[in-house]
Design a protein around this nucleic acid. Structure first.
Lengths: 266, 266
DNA sequence: CAATGATGTTTTGCATGCAAAATCCTGACA
DNA sequence: TGTCAGGATTTTGCATGCAAAACATCATTG
């Protein structure tokens, strides 16, 4: 429930804002925002079956909003990719296959890779990398501890989100930023999708170490204006998510651990 | 006015559907669809100033729809990237810089390049390339004619759209397809954005020849499972649009010729 | 028995009107 | 002159209700 605090649902640039979980859940300023938040949460938690048709009236009652804001929320979630619009027939919950997830991860990898390359090409001052280096260093420190507390875990997720957001901002491309935000609206495509797993196996710890090191390599490449290397390492970095997913699929603990997994068939 | 015939505004997979311009303008089934179509057209034609705030009531009167469908249409256009949402303050027309256009074109090139690579990796039967080959051949035939009639021009645009749509479909990746559709919602990012120019200089004719040949090279690469080559040529292919834009910028005939150019500042 | 058509029910699309937020305008005061 | 307060006005957000489209049910007919 920690990624549900973007102020208003469709405001842009939300990815680059660092979310403070300060005041509990902020104030969902409008009915539409409230409905969007609640619905996204329900979808991610798997309270709807993939392929299920959504009826507006009962759902509106359940969420305590009227049909107009609910309809607006549904439209937004459709644009995010959770629902499908059937012109005069309402909304249907999307189905995803594991192939879709793999493709989504690879897509994000491509886009973030391009962002890293652009960042290295367009970097004006090496000082601009400072906040990223801080985050990367702290993540390394975290994963080096023999035992990862759940607080450390939370910190890692937050630092990771900040790192990725800052990296994308460094590309100085609104269009690319937009594309990445879109690609990450589906929860299982986001960089921290598979970080929320509860079972921390030794393998998983290894992945964390690898991932933290990749952050450093990416920064080194950008600082040295090695665009190609920055792109390749960033692309490879996204495959951590894929390995994490494969691991989860093997141990069959998907539904509990991974956000949005209940929308995946097979 | 030829690209305004996608049945219902936000139905997905619209890119892969080949649009028949059969019955004039189809029937915009709902008020929302009507408003979306009309508004998109107005935006592309530059009837709104970038940065301008949109007032719903007068606009609704102007379009002869009520505020609800207008609001839905505005929301959709915001998701397409034409407008910006300010939570309790309404919609504002987006501004774009030439850098944004360049980035949008490069982004599309990357994504279509990835599609071409995936197509070569995932191609099941070489027969699947047949419709693409037909389109590519016809385009070559068209550009070989010494004089390009305006009917031939129209045909080229249609064939080009079909080629790109079919290519993307061959990648067999819903996620990638979605990303490309999103990237192309902005008119100047689409593959045929700069084909609508009215002044056909000799340089432009050369670009057409190059472009038609690139289609053939892409198909050859895919047929030969040369994923890397397919990706690279497709990426390069997208730079035709960039050269076209640069040419237009030099001759300062942007506003008249290029869809959506009036949304571009400087 | 399948296909088609009539009829009632559900469900979405939309118009209208009201309330609250934002904006604008005016004028007082430092 | 610039700033700020406060009221008037505009503008968006939303609730309600109605009409039409989609859907379900069942009877009729070939």
């Amino acid at each position: 429930m920690s990624d549900s605090d973007r102020g208003d649902a469709t405001e842009w640039g939300s990815l680059s804002r660092i979310q403070k979980v300060s005041d509990q859940d902020a104030r969902p300023s409008s009915q539409t925002a409230r409905a969007t938040l609640a619905l996204r949460e329900m979808l991610v938690q798997g309270l709807f079956r993939p392929g299920e048709r959504i009826r507006e009236v009962p759902l509106a009652e359940k969420l305590n909003v009227s049909r107009i804001p609910l309809h607006l929320a549904l439209e937004r979630l459709a644009h995010e990719g959770f629902l499908e619009i059937h012109p005069r027939r309402g909304f249907v919950v999307q189905k995803f296959s594991t192939e879709d997830i793999y493709d989504a991860i690879e897509l994000r990898g491509m886009l973030e890779g391009a962002a890293a390359r652009l960042a290295s090409e367009r970097l004006r001052d090496v000082k601009d990398l400072a906040p990223l280096e801080v985050a990367a260093r702290e993540m390394v420190t975290l994963v080096r501890k023999s035992r990862l507390t759940s607080e450390g875990f939370r910190q890692y997720i937050e630092l990771n989100a900040k790192f990725h957001a800052d990296l994308i901002a460094l590309a100085h491309s609104r269009m690319l930023q937009r594309a990445i935000e879109r690609a990450c609206t589906l929860p299982f495509a986001s960089p921290s999708a598979f970080l929320k797993r509860q079972t921390i196996s030794p393998d998983l710890r290894e992945l964390f170490i690898i991932s933290a090191d990749q952050h450093c390599q990416i920064l080194e490449a950008i600082a040295g204006r090695e665009g190609m290397r920055a792109e390749i390492v960033t692309r490879e970095h996204s495959r951590v998510a894929r390995r994490n997913l494969e691991d989860a699929l093997r141990s069959r603990d998907i539904p509990a651990d991974i956000a949005g997994a209940r929308l995946v068939s097979i």
